[in-house]
Simulated assay, not measured.
Amino acid sequence: MEHVSTYLTPEIKLSCYEDHFFKSDVVFDHHMLIWFISGRTRIVQADGVHDFQTGDIFLIPRNQPATVLNYPKDGLPHKTVVMSLTTDILRDFYSGLGVKAGEPPVPKIRSFRQHPLLESCLASLVPYFAVKGPFPPDLAALKMREAISILRTVEPDLDSLLANFDDPHKVDLIHFMEKNYMFNLPAETFGQLTGRSLTTFKRDFKKAFNTTPQRWLTRKRLELAHYQLAEHRKKPTDVCYETGFENLSHFSYAFKKQFGYSPAQLLAPTGQAQAHPAS
């Protein structure tokens, strides 16, 4: 069964991957509040790898690259309630509060596990997905405001994130790319996230790294993959998806072309491969 999303409003949906694994490299335009009904998700970001499953609740900040890996689990589909906290909704919420965003915190995933207030708010939406007919706009607005209010109560410092509506500004290209090279995103998206047009991004990249973005990204991803395999003995499939490759066959081909041996040979106990990348 393919992915099915049922929408109450454009900002509130029930997402279901029935019986298959799904991978996506994304940059969310809005903060995403997610409650797990069943299944498992692994999210790779610059600050590390996050695993979530049934009952977990988490907030993904906007404008942050991520690799999202969705799995069914225990015979149940990957099913979540997703609430998109758009800029328009947050502007409206904060307009009468007089809250100043201040210095934004480090944009990282916030985990709330099985917080009873957030779970009650999001679980109360589930019955409406089975009801035919439009979802009342006033009720949708009320639910969104309830969720934001709970988030602010649970973590008061979230105001500096949720009430910040700035777009990405021009940032240090070398620092940004060294932190985010493992995400399989178009050059246009890397440009937007660093505050550059595509033309300016390519020009600045050539000046900083003396090569093209694609060549540099492939080399960096393969070096990271080699490290994960050799030092942490991770499975090739996990390494493939966590280092920006689309599928295992392409990853294995590129890996062998770069190092002269396959991921499986590197992991073999008989020492069929070198311990370190070939120069």
Rank of each mutant, 00 (worst) to 15 (best):
V49L: 12
E242K: 03
A130W: 11
K108T: 15
C16K: 10
R110W: 11
L266T: 00
T153N: 09
T153D: 10
L122F: 11
Q192I: 00
K73Y: 04
R113I: 05
A163C: 15
S252N: 06
R203E: 03
D159N: 14
P107Y: 09
P65G: 06
Y128S: 15
D56N: 10
H226F: 15
V154M: 05
T270H: 01
V154A: 13
V27C: 11
E188D: 12
A46M: 05
V99Y: 13
L139G: 09
R196E: 08
T87P: 04
D92Y: 06
Y253R: 09
N184A: 10
F36H: 13
Q64H: 04
T218W: 00
V106N: 15
A163H: 11
P72L: 10
R40H: 14
T211G: 11
L224A: 15
D56G: 02
S249I: 06
D167W: 07
R62A: 15
G244A: 08
I148D: 01
A278V: 06
A278I: 04
N164V: 02
L161F: 00
T237Q: 14
K132G: 14
P136H: 07
I57D: 02
D166G: 12
R219S: 13
G191E: 05
Y181S: 07
H169R: 13
A130I: 04
M182C: 05
Y17D: 09
E2C: 05
I148P: 00
